[in-house]
Design a protein around this nucleic acid. Structure first.
Lengths: 219, 219
DNA sequence: GATAAAATATGACATTAATCAGCTAATTTT
DNA sequence: AAAATTAGCTGATTAATGTCATATTTTATC
């Protein structure tokens, strides 16, 4: 549920008047880690990945955002530089920029909007803690299975159980925190075990309970 | 800087009247992962560790809190169960509980207090993202060096450069995400390289630039 | 202060996963 | 359409780190 559903009609209109929309093709940069931001970005259409560059120059994907999601709010609210870069992972991704003052005045005026932000941030923080525990404790195989399940929850499956996002093997590796080759090998294992079907970048989840077992998730 | 410095004198007094303070000895549980919380916990004195239990029953330390810090706010604000457990890591740790209604009404009444929370949450989220990237990409040796530097920033050094917190090798391993034996071996390596001195649970940082180099941190 | 228990230390070994190399398939560019 | 680039795949090898066994030291308990 978007933070903006907390706004009144007038407030939505106010935002509509001040916001600027931009189009991005796959691979185009929305914002860059380390820069300052002066507002937040709302995904209207398409998908983006948020990632940091580690000390060896390797990309680490922190999270994804899709239509209805907001990115860049962390840096705005903490008044720190952007902690991650964002790039579109689909063509025709449409993103609106809402300037800082708009956001701050609405937080001040509208308690609901404010609580939505508090809730969103604290929820994200809980998700981050789970990821930390998994990265620290689970082997690669389990983390990959879990990543597939998280992608399912984030982007949903179509009628044929395909995860509704297309990622390269390398990008999957950059979520899981492993080498591209390991992802390739493990995906074929999952395929052999009839847990998934793979066609290029299309991944079909054939056996979700099975994947959940591999991921060793119990919630 | 504590969130409470945003409060007026009357508000501080109001909290003082409603809050309940408790004492905890080393090892005692402040709250338990999975439970609901109905307020937040302010550390008055002492130190606590926040941790999750991973799927194999292993503890993963997510963060620490010391006098002036607040814990339990994530679960309160997200209206989710507590994502971590908290236990005291020092004797005579004193913690006050501030009930939910107090907090929510102050957030609503006092924009400064509100922004402090937004800032604290979004800052934490940025720290979590860094930890994720490090866990995913850095080898154990670098992560241990970095952990020592983070402990230094959190708890500071005394006049003799000792980190002002006492942790077991196992606890260090549960921050780094490694085996206790690996921590033991790496600490002796660091000792041999004159980066640190170790006396029981006392760790002296002899060469911070050296440790920074090992941790491969560039900020 | 003796005994038990827990924490720390060390070595040998097993396992996981990264790296490297080479090869094939798929895209993109010209 | 050919050439070039990128992505995906596979096998062999190496390096990192976890596990297990055992010894030693420290701390807690009686």
């Amino acid at each position: 549920m978007s933070v903006f559903c907390a706004l009144s009609n007038e407030q939505v209109e106010e935002i509509d008047n001040s916001k600027g929309c931009n189009f991005y093709n796959k691979g185009q940069v929305v914002f860059h880690e380390g820069n300052r931001t002066n507002g937040i970005y709302c995904i209207n259409k398409g998908k983006v990945k948020l990632f940091q560059i580690g000390s060896e120059g390797k990309e680490q994907i922190i999270r994804f955002a899709k239509a209805g999601d907001v990115v860049g709010y962390r840096a705005l609210l903490s008044e720190e530089p952007l902690s991650a870069s964002a790039t579109a992972i689909e063509d025709d991704t449409t993103i609106c920029f809402i300037p800082r003052d708009q956001i701050f005045s609405m937080i001040a005026q509208n308690p609901n909007f404010n609580f939505k932000f508090l809730k969103m941030l604290s929820h994200e923080l809980g998700e981050a803690a789970k990821i930390i525990t998994d990265l620290a404790q689970k082997p690669v195989r389990e983390r990959l299975a879990e990543t597939l399940l998280i992608l399912k929850d984030t982007f949903e499956l179509d009628e044929e159980k395909n995860i509704q996002v297309k990622l390269s093997r390398e990008e999957l590796a950059n979520i899981v925190g492993t080498a591209t080759e390991s992802v390739i090998r493990l995906l074929s294992e999952f395929k052999k075990d009839k847990l998934i079907a793979v066609e290029g970048r299309n991944i079909k989840l054939l056996n979700i309970p099975g994947l959940t077992r591999v991921a060793n998730v119990f919630e």
